[in-house]
Amino acid sequence: MAWLAPYNYWIFVFLMMIGLYTVVARGNLVKKVIGLNVFQASVILFYVSMGKINGGTAPILTGDPDTVYSNPLPHVLMLTAIVVGVATTALALALVVRINDAYGTVEEDEVQEMDRAS
């Protein structure tokens, strides 16, 4: 079962696939955004688990030279990525609201139908 040992990466891949599948397969514009969120969350998990070192502690200086610290950099990067993700979600939802106002629906196929008709 050695291939299961880096289980954190398996979780990352699993979540990523769920997210991508939702984006591609769902016709509801809100659900697509949710799928996108899952996809982004998987990447955040990937970075966070990457920085974790076995037995490592929070990167606050203890004064003891033998302390093992986890790598804080990926975690900090993910703060930025989360901000980006929130902004993307907000913008996407705002667009969905506007689309709903303009078309009266948030179903992709119906929107496409109306675009084709005009």
Binding site: L20, V23, F39, Q40, T88, L95
Partner: peptide, 19 residues
Amino acid sequence: RESLTAAYRYLILGTIGAT
């Protein structure tokens, strides 16, 4: 109104690309 759907599509694909 098509600009909204165009922007939405770009957003989805662009975000996937960036990720």
